[in-house]
């Protein structure tokens, strides 16, 4: 698949593969990469036909884990790690990705990605779990900071220091979700570009772009609404500092008509200066 990348090994603009939009994704003439929810990839047996077709066409498919709970205080579940590694092998993926978050504790599933306290203890927990995971993976892992509706009361580090320390100590790549950067800054009353200025942007493997909406006075990163212009502007701000090799639109429900999705993909291409894929 490395043979299929364009200028300086970039993948350009992509969209997350979901069963509901499989036809749309398959019909994108310029698509070089996509992402699939890792937990939905069968660990053995044939790769689901639509993904196999994309692979045959030279489109890279990145398994994106959502339930590993790398930020859990407990060690990651070896079966979940083995599954992520199997998905990477099944898809001959160039890398995998997961979140800097936890999704369960004390025997209860939270149902979504929860933020960690930005403490030394939490950094140690994430670093240990990433190391356990890297030991089993055939490819590099990119770590994604999340959008947090709330913060823990006793943070010791700011977000840039917290993330930089995790990346330094694990040697992992960064999956930067620009919509999460926007959401967190908006909800905390901060400038999103301040974080961009302090993150190791040369470690960005790819970027997530997604839509959201305000609810209860808080901006929620829903993946079910249109990408706001402010997020596209932030893509441009990011690319002016350091253009990432790839940017991916995440849409997880309330799928709009194909024309609307195409317009969003084109807007990301315009904002980043990459060729359109539609």
């Amino acid at each position: 698949m490395t043979g299929s990348t364009g200028e300086a090994g970039s993948y350009g603009v992509g969209i997350g593969w979901r069963p509901e939009i499989a036809g749309f994704v398959a019909a994108l003439p310029g698509l070089r990469f996509t992402e699939v929810i890792a937990e939905s990839v069968p660990a053995s047996g044939p790769v689901p036909a639509p993904l196999a077709t994309l692979r045959e066409a030279g489109t890279a498919v990145i398994p994106h884990g959502v339930r590993l709970s790398l930020g859990g205080a407990e060690p990651v579940d070896p079966a979940r790690v083995a599954h992520l590694a199997a998905a990477a092998r099944q898809l001959d993926a160039p890398l995998v990705s997961e979140h800097i978050a936890f999704v369960r504790a004390g025997g209860l599933e939270a149902g979504h990605l929860l933020p960690l306290p930005r403490s030394r203890e939490a950094v140690d927990a994430v670093v240990a779990n990433v190391a356990r995971t890297q030991a089993e993976l055939p490819v590099p892992i990119a770590l994604e900071p999340i959008a947090a509706i709330f913060d823990w009361p006793d943070d010791e580090l700011d977000e840039a220091a917290f993330l930089s320390e995790i990346l330094d100590r694990t040697g992992a790549l960064l999956l930067l979700d620009i919509a999460n950067v926007y959401a967190n800054a908006r909800n905390r009353g901060a400038e999103p570009t301040d974080l961009l200025d302090r993150l190791p942007l040369d470690r960005v493997a790819y970027v997530h772009v997604a839509g959201g909406a305000e609810h209860d006075g808080i901006y929620h990163d829903t993946h079910t609404h249109a990408v706001p212009q402010e997020v596209l502007d932030l893509v441009t701000e990011l690319c002016a500092r350091h253009r990432p090799p790839a940017l991916l639109l995440e849409r997880d429900g309330h799928y709009p008509p194909a024309d609307t999705l195409r317009t969003e993909l084109d807007a990301i291409a315009t904002a980043s200066g990459y060729p359109v894929v539609t």
Partner: peptide, 13 residues
């Protein structure tokens, strides 16, 4: 951290 994460998840769900 384990106890604090468990208490937070229990409050949320």
């Amino acid at each position: 951290l384990a106890e604090r994460q468990a208490a937070l998840v229990a409050a949320l769900v």
